[in-house]
Design a protein around this nucleic acid. Structure first.
Lengths: 333, 333
DNA sequence: AAAACAAATCGAAACGTTTCGATATGTTTT
DNA sequence: AAAACATATCGAAACGTTTCGATTTGTTTT
């Protein structure tokens, strides 16, 4: 691999002059620049990024760290962050934290291979975040509250979401409302669940443990959980799935058992993923301002990067999207 | 930021000893290692990744370059590449080539910030790929044929896919088959379209230009294109959408106009994206072995990285997934 | 024509590591 | 007890850039 040294030699100038000529606004004579550029082309010279980053100790790159690069959930978020980063002349790289503490993502954080990061990955521990964030290296955390210097939290109010979803079902006259849970210790799940509980207790309703089944936030999990609910014999009037993917699986299970939605059971989801509007019947759900949150996260990160003051915590509220998977309860005697 | 120099000083050892102690199998006395580790902890030392990469001139990271990080299409691919990379002790970073020649992605290629790359991004030019690939820096290209040293092609046979889809419709008795196109100069679109043409001409069928409408591979585009088709008054018996996203949009347009699928019009898509099985009616489509292709790409990349011989080109075939959006044509007189 | 200045070029240091050959220390062999 | 060896530590060079202050060259002012 040709280095700038080779280029300089071929062009017959000093190393530093070559660097100047190759750079942006260097004050070199046009003739010299020409010579250097030609030499570079001839040698197929490409600058070594690491050497540059090392010297400059700045990368103009931010990382978006996700627990999983795939999955419909992240699309919108990635998009918004990318749009914003690009508009500020920064590069964005997405890295996955699969592998937990040994993942690419954590390596990027620890070793400061980027100028800052946005994190939405529950498998990156608070400690890592707290240790990594520092002067000149801000981190925006999207999926939980974690306190520390140079750490900024952007939250979507899951408790409110859980509350709204449940309240909506209650207002439709339902009283017996099941909750299909995500992983029990997931921050998102805990939030949504506690909103569900608040709505129930505000209306003096009982929570039935046998209707609280774990579906792991996956479609398959939602399917299985719903099958279990059906097998128990005593069907609830409405089911609140802690995310849309589980709701989709659940609807499939209900359909297979010949149970009509929303006539026999009302179903509500959470997330408003893309396919929710295409399922039959279309799924009533809670929409999270993902694009907005991503955009806000990016915004805050850049502010922090530029040394401006930023609040340490922001919270978004959610919105109920009414579709066709819920119907008023028939008046019971 | 503390450097290894500071650590060494605090621990009272030489710089090189500190480096040894911090590294893996360095031959240092346990006592020294202990001292160094403690000093490092105290100073909250984190190694500088760039300096390391520069010295080592190896990153143990590969890049997956996509034209767009979002979108359901890439999920499976990302997953498979990631699984594979992880199993080989490599990190994966995904970067987007939004921004074309000035994008993060191209920068990563040019500046060799990774050890190798897998590219599925039509907005990265052949020239960039050819210039970037070199000894010790192999590139696997997924979406087109591009020749050169250290360049490896993995293709999914789009021509065959277009052919199969069209042939299936013909075998169901349809004769008047519309093609809703992606961007006209997209490699994928050209492939699929030429398969469509081959199937038609093999069965001595005419292609009607007015039924070849551009839908840009987006849902909105498919919707608009279909609206146009409907407005023309003369509806085809079957529509081949060059991807599922357009088909989804198209189905919505048909439904809005009260046209029944598949009774009045058969619809076939391409890609088998996740939501295709959930739309009503479920969408018959062409499934590409995306996971397999990604896995193969990763496989080949590592072989090349290890200096093993690899073939320069691989081709996968596609598979028709029969669902409910197509029906045999009623016998016409 | 000498002095003053600006522009272009150069040399050297620095960024923070890793690694190699050399030295110092301690242990075994003869 | 001297010689031979293994082990632990050290110093210095190297990776490929950028950048700063110094030097050279050429141009303008007095």
């Amino acid at each position: 691999m040709a280095t700038i040294k080779d280029v300089a030699k071929l062009a017959g100038v000093a190393l530093s002059t070559a660097s100047l000529a190759l750079g942006e606004g260097g004050r070199v004579s046009p003739a010299t620049r020409q010579k250097v550029l030609e030499a570079a082309r001839e040698l197929n010279y490409q600058k070594n990024g690491f050497a540059m980053d090392l010297k400059r100790s700045q990368t103009r790159t931010i990382a978006l760290i996700l627990s999983d690069l795939s999955g419909p959930y992240f699309s919108e978020l990635i998009q918004s962050v990318q749009d914003f980063a690009l508009s500020r002349g920064y590069d964005l790289i997405a890295c996955s934290s699969v592998g937990g503490q040994d993942s690419t993502a954590v390596k990027f954080l620890r070793e400061k291979r980027v100028d800052g990061a946005i994190v939405l990955a529950h498998n990156v521990s608070n400690e890592v975040l707290q240790e990594s964030a520092r002067e000149g290296f801000p981190i925006v955390v999207l999926d939980r509250v974690v306190l520390g210097d140079y750490l900024i939290n952007v939250l979507v109010d899951g408790e409110q979401g859980g509350y709204e979803a449940t309240k909506y079902l209650i207002e439709q006259g339902h009283r017996r409302i099941a909750y299909i849970s995500g992983p029990v210790n997931s921050y998102d799940n805990i939030q949504r669940y506690s909103g569900y509980q608040r709505a129930l207790s505000e209306h003096a309703l009982q929570e039935l443990k046998k209707w609280n089944v774990i579906g792991h936030f996956t479609q398959e999990g939602g399917f299985q959980a719903t099958k279990m609910l059906i097998l128990q014999g005593d069907l609830p009037e409405a089911i609140f799935y802690a995310n849309d993917e589980m709701a989709l699986g659940g609807m499939k299970a209900l359909a297979e058992s010949g149970i009509r939605i929303p006539e026999q059971v009302s179903v509500i989801g959470y997330d408003d993923i893309f396919q929710s509007q295409y399922v039959q019947p279309s799924l009533t759900t809670i929409r999270q301002p993902k694009y907005e949150a991503g955009s806000m996260a990016a915004h805050l990160l850049f502010q922090a990067l530029e040394g401006q003051f930023v609040n340490k915590s922001y919270k978004f509220s959610v919105e109920l999207v009414e579709r066709n998977s819920c119907a008023p309860s028939l008046v019971r005697k």
